[in-house]
Structures are given as C-alpha cells and as structure tokens.
Design a protein around this nucleic acid. Structure first.
Lengths: 129, 129
DNA sequence: GCCGCTAAAGAGATTAGTTCTCATTACCCT
DNA sequence: AGGGTAATGAGAACTAATCTCTTTAGCGGC
C-alpha cells in the first residue's frame, strides 16, 4: 500500500471489504465501520481506499452523479456487466475486448491509453420476470 | 431547450460550441466566453449546457476526476478517444467494438445491453512534446 | 413602439464528495 | 524499551455543480 505499516484502521477496512461484495462508496464504508464500533476518520478511509485502488486491490467505478464506488476485485483488468434491475454484477473482459480497444487507439496514434467501459443490461433472471 | 426564449447568453454559448470541436468543461467554456467579452454567469452556462445535453444537442462525458465535458455532437452512437493533455478528440467506434461488446454481454445471458466506453490517451502531438 | 407576463439570468450561498494540512499517535525495528 | 517516521484524525480547504432569490429582458399582444 502507501507505506508498509499494518494499522488497526487498515485491517478493519480490509476486513470489511472482504465481507461486502457489492460496490460501496467511501462514505458508506465509513458508516459501516462506525456501525460496528470502529472509529476511523473519513480521511483515512479515503486514503486507504485510494491506495488499495492504486495497488489494484480494489475495483473502482464512478456513478452518474460522480461518486466513486469501491469493491474488492480479482487483480486483473476487467469490466463490469451490471444488471440494471437487480444490480447483479458479472466481471467481463479478456483478450478480445482489450485488443480491439488497443487497436483502435493505436490506429489514431494515441499512446499510453487507458479506458473505462461499463456494460448495463438486464440479466437472465430479470428478463424472465 | 428548457423554455423557448432566445437570449443573448444562449446564442453566445451555442455559437461558441459551434466553433470549438473538442470536449470542454462548463468552466472552460465560461472562461472562453469571458475572454471574448461575453459576461455570462457560470450558473447560466451550467443550466444551458445541461438543457442542451438533455435535448441531445450535446455529447457529454465524465473525466476521471469527475468533471463533465461537453461538445456539440453528431447524434449517432460512437465513443471518444480523448487526449488527456490537450483534449483533442477522435470519434471511434464501429462494427468491431460493438460486436465484441455485444458478444460478451450475450455470453452471460444479458439482454437489452447498453454500454459506456471512453478512451483516454496521449495524442501524437503531445507525445512528442 | 410600448406593456406586461414570465422565462431566464446573475450573484452568491450551498451542497456533496473528496483531498489537504499539520499536530498527534502508534507501528515496528533494533 | 526507545526512537524514527509512517499513518491517523479533525477540520479546513477545494472542486464541481446546483440552488435561491432578486433582477433583467424576450416576445406576444395591443
């Protein structure tokens, strides 16, 4: 992470993230920590989440209203396919997607390219309802 | 737009957007207007841009830092490859991208899929600087 | 061309989310 | 146990955007 020390606060945040598997905002996580008796500064939550995201330990995405959401992730680059009715999330991605994106960018001479991609749809279950 | 009146301010904003073909933030547009002697309130710029975006007269996108950018748009589905230094924008998209995305979604049984995709990179010119 | 209705503008306050500052605390190595 | 220093916490600051409320000015009707 940022430095190297294992603090009570970082431990608590990591533990919480292990339990929650939906995307949550920094503020929600802060409130959840408070609810279970952990007094941790909001700034610390932001710092820790930011650091974990930098270290690719977390997935982040941005809502329409500009809020950042965080969730534990499985380390490789991927995107989300989110059901717009029930919120069920599937992680997608892989060579196909990435190479097409990379090719498009390269075709225009752009370097050092990053991308954001979010898919929204209706999942199998919700389609049946 | 919101109502019906053609005001000096709306005319100026529309004219500016016709000249600029890169994505610009509301604040940048406000500054550009000020630079050319138009005194228009920031709130008015936001209101007008918001209204134009609602009316599908503008393309909008969100930067990493959560800022909204606006640009006059050409109404068909496409994505943007934006230079993170100078803002130069290329419209990309086409069968390759779309079909890969569609295939991925279909593979998970999701229907009625929409997607957002933004590419950020450094353009040829800025790479040389 | 003038009047009046009311949409729209402008200034500034406000909000939401996030980041920064800096004094204090507490890891962790020896 | 002691000390160096990374990390924390409280609150201020910052950024982008929105809201409030008073004032201004389109525009249709006369």
């Amino acid at each position: 992470m940022i430095g190297q020390r294992t603090t009570r606060q970082r431990t608590a945040i990591a533990a919480l993230l292990d339990e929650v598997d939906e995307f949550r905002s920094a503020q929600q996580l802060h409130a959840l920590l408070a609810a279970r008796g952990e007094t941790i500064g909001l700034a610390t939550v932001y710092r820790t989440l930011g650091a974990m995201a930098d270290a690719d330990e977390l997935d982040t995405l941005r809502t329409d209203s500009g809020q950042s959401l965080y969730r534990r992730c499985e380390r490789q680059h991927h995107h989300h396919l989110v059901c717009r009715r029930c919120g069920a999330t599937v992680e997608v991605g892989g060579a196909g997607l990435e190479s097409v994106v990379k090719a498009v960018a390269a075709a225009h001479g752009y370097t050092d390219v990053t991308h954001t991609l979010e898919l929204f749809g209706t999942c199998t279950r919700c389609t049946r309802l």
